[in-house]
Amino acid sequence: MKIVLWSTSIKANSQWLIAVSRIQNNMENKAITTDKLTKRFGDFIAVNEISFEVDKGEIFGFLGANGAGKTTAMRMLIGLSKPTAGKASVAGFDVYQQTEKIKKSIGYMSQKFSLYEDLSVQENIDLFGSIYGLQKNILKQKSQQLLSNLKLEDDKNKLVQSLPLGWKQKLAFSIAIIHNPQIVFLDEPTGGVDPITRRQFWDMIYAASANGITIFVTTHYMDEAEYCNRVSIMVDGKIEALDSPNNLKKKFEAKSMDEVFQQLARKAKRADG
């Protein structure tokens, strides 16, 4: 009897060890993990126990109708908002305790254009570059490369407010990844942008992804969802579907991501807005 007992406890122990090492392994391969992450505002549950993982180097599409809770979820991950419950880690750092460490390892481009409109292109690059602690010579080199990629060399002394929207968004994205972050969060980066510029924007996203940056992107354009490696769809604060676009289309017997989205979003009870 005693021997059996011993053996089971050893077995349990070893299982526990395996579990621990698996978690650590996961942490190393995962850019983002969340476990029942929740955000309440009073009685309203904006984000309801969402659990998902994003692999390193992945382009992860975070979809959902307006008001489904995408932006709130994203704000928790980037350390702008404290979660009510649940766990999450971003770039290996805890979203409760290590928000400032998270901020060093990520880039963010918000829904609202948020570079300084009354500063010039060059000044914005220098400002954010130095906030992220880039050294002068590296910053100079990076900013030249950035300007030539965007073909903005001649306009670098223009005020940002004078640029067309598409250019502004491309500039904002380039600045968001100027410090070579592990993950970049893009909140509806292509809203209101023309199709050609959108295409160019996604080329930039692919280039960043090829450089090893994990992309976490929200969008309302379903053609863009097709470009993602994996996609999650949020409805009323919960993640209703999470898979690669092809698998999702098979599962929902749909021809396009648009149909998948229509099927899921129709179930939403929350008012649009």
Binding site: L80, I106, F113, S114, L115, I131, G133
Partner: peptide, 13 residues
């Protein structure tokens, strides 16, 4: 109001 504070708040400044 402009929203630039958001961009600053996600930096490690």
């Amino acid at each position: 109001e402009k929203g630039t504070i958001e961009q600053i708040n996600v930096t490690p400044v």
